[in-house]
Simulated scan of single mutants.
Amino acid sequence: MPAATDRRGPPHVGAGVVTVLVIGDVVTDILTVHEGPLAIGSDTIASVRIAGGGSAANTAVWLAAAGSAVAFAGVAGEDEPGDARLAELHQAGVTTSVRRVPGVATGTVVVLTSDAERTMFTDRGANRLLARADIERALALPGLRHLHLSAYVLFDPDCAPAGRFALEEARRRGLTTSLDAASAAPLEQLGGAKFLSSVPRTSLLFANLDEARVLGSPDPADLRHLADGVIVKSGAAGASWAGPDGTASAPGRRLPAIVDPTGAGDAFAAGFLTAWLAGETPHAALDAGNKLGARAVAKLGGRP
Rank of each mutant, 00 (worst) to 15 (best):
F195E: 03
S249K: 13
A250S: 14
P11M: 07
H90F: 01
G36T: 03
T108Y: 07
N58K: 03
V109P: 08
T59I: 05
E88W: 03
A84L: 11
P244E: 06
G36A: 03
D115W: 13
A71L: 01
D134G: 09
D222L: 12
F165D: 03
R137C: 07
A285P: 07
G41V: 05
A185G: 00
S47N: 08
L167M: 01
A39Y: 02
R213A: 14
C159S: 08
P220S: 11
L63F: 02
G24H: 07
E78H: 10
R100Y: 06
W276C: 10
A264P: 01
K233Q: 10
R201K: 12
L187E: 09
A73S: 08
P37T: 07
S217A: 08
G24L: 09
D219S: 13
L167Q: 02
P261V: 06
A126R: 09
L144T: 00
P81I: 04
F165Y: 15
F121Q: 09
D29S: 02
P304V: 12
D266M: 11
E35Y: 06
D43G: 01
E188T: 09
L129K: 13
T5H: 11
E35C: 04
G191D: 09
A288R: 15
A64I: 09
F195N: 03
S203I: 02
G93S: 05
G53C: 10
D158R: 14
G9F: 10
A76L: 13
A162M: 12
T247G: 04
V153H: 01
L144M: 01
R49E: 15
D134M: 11
V94R: 08
T96D: 02
A162W: 10
S197I: 04
T28P: 01
R224I: 06
G143D: 01
R254M: 00
D287F: 01
T59L: 12
L129E: 12
A46S: 10
A92F: 12
A181D: 08
A57H: 10
V13M: 03
I23K: 00
R99H: 08
G289K: 12
Q91I: 00
R164N: 07
P200K: 05
V101S: 07
V22P: 00
A3Y: 14
G143A: 03
E169L: 00
F155G: 13
A237E: 11
K233G: 05
R303K: 15
F272A: 04
I50G: 11
E35I: 04
P102F: 04
E35W: 04
H12T: 07
A298R: 07
I45F: 10
V22M: 00
G229V: 10
A151G: 13
F268L: 04
V17L: 11
L112A: 15
I135H: 11
A264D: 03
A227W: 15
T95S: 08
P102M: 03
G216R: 14
R171C: 00
V199M: 00
G82Y: 00
H12F: 09
A275S: 12
L175A: 04
I258E: 15
R99I: 05
A160D: 11
Q189S: 14
S240G: 11
T274R: 14
L204Y: 00
F195I: 04
L255P: 00
T96L: 04
R173S: 00
V110L: 15
D79G: 05
I135K: 07
A242R: 06
S249W: 10
G9E: 05
P186N: 09
G77P: 04
L63D: 02
G14A: 07
